[in-house]
């Protein structure tokens, strides 16, 4: 299999087949929390793409050029979580200073992303699957796009069921979980799409 095809397969697999929220259950908190309306869902999605792309690139470089030469691979969890936390803070300060317009759109979502387990999950996954730099970044962006697709679909459905007559115990979180469950069934249809 040539490299270009492999890269495309990694992206499709990360975005659709192994969808980060619906089949790997990472990043559930923002998925359930920020999906009340389409506008904030889209903002969150873009912020996640932004942060995951940068963090998977940086964590891959740190792993390749610092941890492996010093044979400190066992410190990956500690190093990655600190790098991600610092990176998010740094990105926020950088955007505030340099691109205030973008900061105004994404700023409120950035602090929420530090504790998003999808970011750490992708960084650790890249190491487990022995991805190189390009593959890591593509896997990261693919995963984040999958998150964005899922959260936007959920927000669309939630906007529509808002005024419906939902049984009292199911109002709030339970109906959102049921919706997510039905979406997960739909996304299972992608599972036969590719074979890596």
């Amino acid at each position: 299999m040539n490299d270009a095809v492999k890269i495309i397969l990694i992206a499709v697999s990360a975005a659709l087949v192994n969808n980060v929220v619906l089949s790997r259950f990472l990043g559930l908190c923002p998925f359930l929390g920020v999906s009340k309306n389409m506008k904030s869902a889209a903002g969150m999605g873009v912020a996640v793409i932004f942060v995951i792309a940068i963090s998977s690139a940086v964590s891959n470089l740190i792993y390749q050029f610092i941890l492996v030469p010093l044979s400190l691979e066992y410190l990956q969890t500690i190093v990655f979580i600190l790098v991600i936390a610092a990176l998010v803070q740094f990105v926020e300060m950088f955007l505030k200073k340099v691109i205030p317009a973008l900061h105004k759109t994404l700023g409120v979502y950035l602090p929420l992303i530090t504790t998003n387990c999808a970011v750490l999950g992708v960084a650790l996954n890249n190491v487990t699957d022995e991805y190189g730099f390009l593959e890591s970044v593509v896997n990261g962006i693919g995963t984040a796009v999958g998150f964005t697709i899922a959260i936007i679909i959920l927000a669309g459905v939630r906007e529509r069921i808002e005024d419906n007559d939902i049984p009292v115990p199911f109002q709030g979180m339970p109906i959102v979980m049921l919706t997510a469950g039905l979406m997960a069934i739909a996304f299972m249809g992608f599972s036969g799409l590719i074979r890596l």
């Binding site: 259950f25 115990p169 199911f170 109002q171 979180m173 339970p174 979980m177 469950g181 997960a184 069934i185």
Partner: peptide
């Protein structure tokens, strides 16, 4: 994976009631 969401939905609905 869908089963996890469905079971949690019913669990939270039960706790809420």
């Amino acid at each position: 994976s869908p089963g996890a969401f469905l079971v949690m939905a019913f669990l939270i609905a039960f706790l809420n009631s």
